[in-house]
Write a protein that binds this DNA or RNA. Sequence first.
DNA 1: CCTTCAGTATTTTAGACAGCATGTC
DNA 2: CTAAAATACTGAAGG
Length: 730
Amino acid sequence: MRISELDLPAPVKEFYERSGIKELYPPQAEAVKKGFLEGRSLLAAIPTASGKTLLAEMAMLKSISHGGKALYIVPLKALASEKFERFRQFETLGVRTGISTGDYDSRDEWLGDRDIIVATSEKADSLLRNGAPWLSSLTIVVADEVHLIDSANRGPTLEVTLARLRRLNPSLQIIALSATIGNAKELAGWMGAELVVSDWRPTTLKEGVFFGRAINFQDEKRVISTPGPDEVLALVSDTLAEGGQCIVFTNTRKSSEGIAQKVAKSLSKKLTEEEKAAFQDIKQQVLRHAETDTCARLAACVEHGAAFHHAGLKNEHRRIVEDEFRRNRIKVIACTPTLAAGLNLPARRVIIKDYRRYDVNYGSVPIPVLEYKQMAGRAGRPGLDPYGEAVLIAKTHDEMGELMDNYVLSEPEHITSKLGTEPALRSHVLSAIATDLCRDESDLYDFMDTTFYAYQRGDLSAVIKNVLDFLEAERMVVRSGDRLNASELGRLVSRLYVDPLSASIIVRALEAAKKRGEPYQKEIALLQLICATPDVRPLYLRRSDYGWVVKYTEDHIDDFLTEVPGAGDETDFEAFLATVKTAALVDMWINERNEEEITSFYSIGPGDVRSLMESCVWLMHATAEISGLLRAPVTTEARELAVRIEHGISRELMDLIELEGVGRVRARKLYDAGFRDRETLKKADEAAVAAVLGEKVAAKVLAQLGRKDVAATTGPDDTIGQSTLLLFHE
DNA sequence: CCTTCAGTATTTTAGACAGCATGTC
DNA sequence: CTAAAATACTGAAGG
C-alpha cells in the first residue's frame, strides 16, 4: 500500500514522500485496513522499529486536520524529548507540538494551543488532577509502550489515565502501541480497539543460543570466527570482525562495567590511528563531567571504543554513550536493562548474557519472555545491517535446549493489571474524589469498573473500601451522607502528586513538630522524614554501615520526627537505619561535600545521587506545602531545604544561587572570594569577579545584575539556563 | 613469623516517574 | 517455595 493512496491531507502525504517514505510496511497497511485513519481505535502489537511511530503520526495528523488535538503518552522522559524533537518537524505542516514532563513543561496556556502534546503517563495523570482545561478537547490519545500496564509501579497510572481520558471524551480515539504480548486481544477488547498483531520486521532477526563454539539458531548454526575462553568476548570479537556493533545485556552494574573493561582491553590491541583519535575525543567528552570513580572507569573504557551504561551514570554520560554508539564510534555497549526498552538504539548483534535477575522476593528468577524479546528486538539496524542477531549464552547442552524452548521459541507472557492493590489505588482513589470525577462511592465503583483491572480480573470494591477507610482516617476524604469530598489536605496531596501514605507520614511528623513548639531547626529530622516516605527509595543498608549509622542515630535520637522503632523489632529498626543512612547522604550533599567523596563513601554512582536528590527536592517541597497548610513550624525550613537540596548548597549560598549560571561550585567560589551575595556582587569590580569565574561566565553573571557596563556575550559556551542538578562542575 | 592458597562464609544484587517557576529545549 | 557471583574470612601448608 502506497502513501499516496491514503486518506490523508495532501501536505501530509507530501511530507512523508519527501522524507523518502512511499510505501507502507505490511503491519501498517493492515492497520489502515482496520480503519485507524477513519478514527477507529487501534492496538498495534508489533516489534520495535517496524513503524509503530509512523502509525501514530498519521493518525494524529489526520485527527488534527479535522481540528483535533493529540496527546502522546510515553513511559520515559528521554523518550518524551525524542518524540518531541521528531514531531517538531511537523511545524512545516502547521502542526505545533508541546512537551510536558517533570523536567520541562510548555506553559499551560501554550499547551492549550499546541496540536500535539507529548507527556509521560505520570505527567498526563498530574495534568488531569490539576484540571488542565485543554484535556477535554483531545480527540486522539497515543499510548506508547502500552504493555507497561503490566508494571507494578507505573502500570496503574497508565491504565487509570487512559480510563479517565476516555470518560472525559467517550469518542476519544486511542492508538496503543505495544510490544508483542500474549493477550493483545484482551487489551484491545478493553480499549474497544481494532487489533493488529504481527512479527514482521524491516530487518530479519535471528535468535539463537551460543554454546561451545557456535551460535545455534533455529535452523542453522554459526561457528564463531574468534573463539576464546570468554564467551562474551568471543561473541563480541566475532561481531566486530564483521564490522558490526554489539550490545551486551547484563544483570548487574558491576558485571556491565567488567565486560566493558574486558572488551576495551581486547580492543585496545588493534586500533587504527583514526579510531584512537576518535576515542580520545569521546574520552575528553566523558571527562568534562569528571571527578568520580565511575566517570574515570567509563573514560578508560571509551578510550578503547567500549562503554558501559547503567543508572549509576549521569544523564550526560549516558547521552554521550548513546550518541557515540549511534555514530558508530563506540563499538560495544555493556549495559543493564536501562537500554532494554524505549530509546531507539539498534546494534548488529545483541548478547543477552544473563537471563536471570535478582528479585527481592524470589531470589534470582528468569526474566520474562517479554523482556527478552524487547532486548532481542534491539538487534539489526534497519537499512544498515543485513540482519540482526540476538544471542543467549548457555553453559551446558541442556541449558541450550532450555533457553531455546523458553525464550527463542516462546511466546511473550500475558500482561496483567496491577491496579488491585492498596498502594496502587490509594492515590488514584484520592485523585478521583479530589477532582470531583467521582462524587460518591458507587460513582467510584463505576469508574473503577472501566479500568483494565476490572475488565480483566473483575471486582475492585473490596480494596477500594479499604483505601477509602484509610483516606478517611487520615482526613484526606470526608463523607457527608453519600457524598465523598476531599478535604483541603486531600486536594493538596492529590495535586502534589505524592503517595497519600507519604503524606500521612509527613502529617504525623509535622504534628509532632507542632507539639514541640518553636520553629523547628533540626535539618536532619526533616531529611530523615522524607527519606522515611515510600516515595523515596532508601539506600541499601550494608552490614558494614551498621556501626556508624547506629552511632549517627544515637547522636540525633532526640531530633527525629518519625517514631524510632524499639529495639524489639529488628526489621523495622533496620529499615529506620536505612532512612537515616539516606538522610545522612543528603546532609553531606547540602553541606557541599564533593561528589567524589559522596559516591565513594556510599559506593553509589553519580547518577544515583542525582536521582535521589530529585526525589528529595520533590518531597521536601511537598513537606513545605503540607506544613504551610497545617501551620506547622517547619514551613520556612522545608522551603529552604528544598532549594538547598536542589543545588547542593549550604544556607549561606542561597542568595548567590539565584543567579543563572551559578551552581554549587561557582557560588562557593564567589562566596569564598568575598562576594557573599548579589548585592556585594553588584558593586564588585568586574576584573575581580572574572578572576574567580572566568571572563565569559563573569560577564554573564554581572549582566543579570543590571550591570550595563558589562557586555553580555551570548553563546552556548556553557550550561547556563538549564535547571538540572549537578551541572556546574569544573 | 609471614605469605599463599584453597575452601568456606558472607555480602550484594535493575530501573525511574512526580511539584513549581522560568523560559522555549 | 525459589539464586548466584563476588568478596571477605579462615586455617593450613610452605617459605
